[in-house]
Design a protein around this nucleic acid. Structure first.
Length: 689
DNA sequence: GTGGACTCGATTTTT
DNA sequence: TCGAGTCCAC
């Protein structure tokens, strides 16, 4: 054994070592919160390369978020030396799918330069399709979009959706689905769900492609396996087929995305599909105090389990979990804010050591006000994405059209931005003509027959636009693609258009700066993997335009830009939803709003998914390293009305002796309690009297 | 193009 | 209740 891998292994506990060494067959690692699962995955990759002599280019590790992929890549990079890690795949499921599609364009019937539609682009297309017959409201579009996404995630194709439609609504959605798929194909475009669906159907239907990818990937590792959906599981299954060499790591107790298609039962299915499955449990927690873990264990003990596990730690018992009952929501926010302020001094902690977790984003509003009042620096997760900004959508549409002239969506977005006096009338006639001829809008502009359908002036204007785009494209192919893009933005004077349309010059300035940031990011993204690029370039005849193309896709997948946001590691209190907190840890955690109807959420109670809410609470609790404070309000304003709140059932499910209550009405000293009882009786009498 | 009146909804959102 | 988003009149 090489010394470096031996010392890595020695740092792991026996169960973790077992998980690393289990390489001959299918392996499921049930990794409790804080049990060092990332160490297992990264060490296992190093073990496969250094100890088993497997080439890194035969290994694929997949995660759900770009962030997780980046962190994993970095940790593996530290373990492997020199060229050992060359060609290793550590990516999200979606990026893996994107690469498969890029490698199998012909087999899939797509052309080079295909566009990747983000959910907003997809919605725009659906709106178009659904509004053809009658005006449809936004809600209906959202519903159909969700239905289509669910179908795709469940590997249900339009034909099957149509034949299984139970009612008119589903039938309608299924017909839109069919049209949607057809249009995407015509646009030479794929959506996010296609990034998994298309590879799965290809591998299922094309034995040669299957053989190609099985030859390429010999070992897979999957993180957060409980969050996989049907199509993601099938992708892993198809790729690992007969070889059965994979490791999946997950925790059914942290499954909080079932509402979005995740199938935690994939953990069980795995045992059925692979009888040789080696199940290894990691139960030692390296994060939290004994008290916090005991509370977490007791709470989650109320959920049914296929695989029982109990977390333990040797970090000492630590402090009791405090439960603070407040008069109302404002008092709750006030309390949390002021407590962070004092605790920071008392504990000599930094702002970043604190996190406040809540069920819904709206809960952050009041808290923000209080934190501002006390001048506590904080960072709010979520918020409007860079990519939903209009100027970014415009720039992305230009890029997409340059790479993929069939992308009608991109064409429509920017054909008249900045103004080129190409109005709805012209576009409608152009669309009719293109439909008749079975071509894209952009291609139709080049056709001579168009002159018969449109006034000369309109044809001229369209021609000027396409000529402009064609010119940029030629410059891109001829050399420095990014220089051509920057030149394009200057030539068409996008900046002037921004100034015309902004309410203030500073806003226009900021927007233009955003566009340049986007282009800078594009450049960075192209330089991100010089090794891979070199490899691709030798393997095929990759041009710089190909690089721009793949960089744009990565940009759509939110890869590189969010990295920049992360690098801002200023010292601030974190405000997060419990969902967003998964995978993170903090010395001091505040969990707000432990009330019935909020956590568990009322909708969850209604539809009977309290178990997932319990897991959500479990995730929240297990984020805490040293101290945990749970807060709730007796009254809360909801829908404009003041509502009395009931403490969350989850509080009753925690071990009484691990909690330290503050302000609880029915656990005060008996005298007070009796006094209030008298009051109540008196009140009742007065009511009756 | 813009702002004021009006309507509607109110949980979470890895890519 | 409050706020975001939509729509219409100017």
């Amino acid at each position: 054994m090489t010394p470096s891998i031996a010392s890595r292994l020695a740092k792991l506990n026996p169960r973790q070592q077992e998980a690393v060494r289990a390489i001959d067959g299918p392996c499921l690692v049930l990794a409790g919160a804080g049990s060092g699962k990332t160490s297992v995955i990264t060490t296992k990759i190093a073990y496969l390369v250094q100890e088993c002599g497997m080439s890194a280019r035969r290994i694929a590790a997949v995660t759900f978020t770009n962030k997780a992929a980046r962190e994993m890549k970095e940790r593996v990079g530290q373990m492997l030396q020199g060229r050992e890690g060359h060609g290793l795949t550590v990516s999200t499921f979606h990026t893996l799918g994107l690469n498969i599609i890029r490698g199998e364009l012909k087999a899939l019937g797509y052309k080079p330069g295909f566009s990747l539609f983000d959910p907003e682009d997809a919605k725009a297309l659906l709106r178009d399709l659904m509004n053809k017959d009658a005006q449809v409201d936004a809600e209906a579009i959202n519903q159909v979009q969700a239905a289509i996404s669910n179908w795709k995630n469940d590997l249900v194709l339009p034909g099957q959706a149509l034949s299984h439609a139970a009612d008119d609504g589903e039938q309608f959605a299924a017909r839109v689905y069919e049209a949607y798929v057809r249009h995407l194909k015509a646009y030479n475009a794929v959506d996010f769900d296609d990034l998994i669906l298309l590879p799965v159907t290809l591998l299922r239907d094309d034995p040669e492609a299957l053989a190609r990818w099985r030859r390429k990937i010999h070992y897979m590792l999957v993180d957060e396996y409980q969050d996989t959906n049907v199509s993601q599981y099938q992708l892993v299954r198809m790729l690992m087929g007969e070889r059965q060499t994979f490791t999946v790591v997950g925790d059914d107790d942290q499954s909080i995305y079932a509402w979005r298609g995740a199938r935690p039962e994939n953990l069980v299915t795995l045992g059925e599909d692979f009888p040789r499955l080696n199940v290894i449990k990691l139960e030692q927690n390296y994060r939290s105090t004994g008290t916090i873990l005991r509370a977490a264990n007791t709470l989650i003990g109320n959920n049914p389990h296929v695989y029982e596990k109990t977390l333990w730690s040797n970090m000492g018992q630590g402090e009791a979990i405090r439960v603070v009952v407040n008069r109302h929501e404002e008092a709750e926010a006030e309390r949390v804010a002021s407590e962070i302020l004092t605790r920071r001094i008392k504990e000599r902690a930094e702002w970043r050591d604190f996190a406040v977790l809540y069920r819904g984003n709206f809960q952050a509003r009041l808290l923000e006000l209080k934190l501002q009042h006390y001048q506590v620096p904080y960072k709010l997760s979520g918020g409007t994405s860079f990519f939903s900004r209009g100027e970014i959508k415009d720039a992305m549409a230009y890029l997409r059209l340059l790479i993929n002239p069939a992308d009608d969506n991109a064409f429509l977005r920017i054909v008249n931005v900045p103004r080129r006096e190409i109005g709805p009338g012209t576009l409608e006639k152009l669309a009719n003509y293109a439909t008749d001829r079975g071509t894209s809008l952009f291609a139709a502009c080049h056709e001579l027959g168009l002159a018969e359908q449109l006034p000369t002036r309109a044809v001229e204007r369209l021609g000027r636009f396409t000529h402009f785009i064609d010119g940029v494209r030629r410059r891109m192919d001829g050399g420095d693609a990014l220089a051509a893009i920057r030149e394009m933005l200057r030539d068409m004077d996008y900046e002037a258009w921004l100034y015309q349309n902004a309410s203030a010059p500073t806003i226009a300035e900021r927007r233009m700066a955003n566009v340049w940031t986007l282009i800078d990011q594009l450049e960075k993204s192209m330089q991100a993997d010089p090794e891979d690029r070199a490899e691709e370039a030798t393997a095929s005849t990759a041009t710089e335009t190909d690089d721009v193309e793949s960089a744009i896709s990565r940009l759509v997948l939110r890869d590189i830009l969010e990295q920049q946001a992360e690098e801002d590691d200023s010292d601030r209190v974190q405000l997060l939803t419990m969902h967003a907190s998964k995978g993170l840890e903090f010395p001091h955690v505040y969990l707000m709003g432990l009330e019935e109807e909020l956590l568990p959420h009322r909708n969850a109670i209604e539809v009977g998914t309290v178990e997932e809410e319990r897991r959500l609470a479990y995730v929240g609790i297990t984020r805490a390293r040293r101290t945990l404070t749970l807060t709730l309000a007796r009254q809360r304003k909801a829908y404009g009305e003041l509502m009395d709140c009931t403490p969350s059932r989850f509080l009753d499910e925690l071990p009484e002796d691990a909690l330290e209550w503050e302000g609880r009405a029915d656990r005060e000293d008996p005298e007070k309690k009796q006094a209030r009882g008298q009051d109540a009786i008196a009140g009742l009498r007065s009511l009756l009297g």
